[in-house]
């Protein structure tokens, strides 16, 4: 892939809208029902008990802000950095639990426990998402942003 293709303004805009939309959508259910989301975070068995609620309360807001910023084009560099780190963290957390052999609830988009699926599916989805966030990290397109100098 050449630079021109990677830096295409329209392609970058579409990926921004998709990734931003995904994270905004993912955050809403978690913000509305923090107790259920905290239970899912607890179920990953990765954080000490005392940090579970703090993480469950702040994470969805980070997702929402980054999603909005990505779409409108404000503080994009910071948002893209965070989203890359978040998706990487999700992948690591899911992989650890895959090797532990426990099928956990993802807590990706909904806190409802009815949405059962396998860790492999969540992982594949997150790897696809990582491809998109990595692309945004690489792309140098500066158009369609409320604060172009931010990028």
């Amino acid at each position: 892939m050449n630079r021109k293709f990677l830096d295409n303004d329209y392609m970058t805009l579409i990926v921004r809208l998709v990734v931003g939309g995904i994270f905004i959508y993912a955050s809403l259910d978690k913000i509305a029902t923090p107790a259920q989301f905290a239970r899912i975070v607890y179920n990953y068995h990765l954080l000490p008990s005392s940090l579970i609620n703090i993480f469950a309360l702040v994470l969805p807001w980070v997702e929402l802000i980054c999603g909005i910023f990505l779409i409108v084009g404000f503080k994009q560099k910071g948002s893209i950095l965070i989203l890359n780190l978040l998706v990487l963290t999700f992948i690591v957390a899911l992989t650890i639990n895959l090797f532990r052999g426990v099928n956990i609830e993802c807590g990706c988009f909904t806190v409802s426990s009815k949405a059962k699926s396998s860790i492999i599916d969540f992982l594949l989805r997150d790897i696809g998402l990582l491809a998109l966030t990595l692309y945004l990290l690489i792309s140098r397109s500066r158009r369609f942003a409320v604060a172009a100098s931010d990028r």
Binding site: V58, W61, V62, I65, K75, G78, S79
Partner: peptide
């Protein structure tokens, strides 16, 4: 450096909203 500064700002804003 500016990415990190922006990222920190976003996390602080998220914490305040939370």
């Amino acid at each position: 450096a500016s990415s990190l500064r922006q990222a920190l700002l976003i996390i602080i804003a998220a914490a305040v909203l939370a």
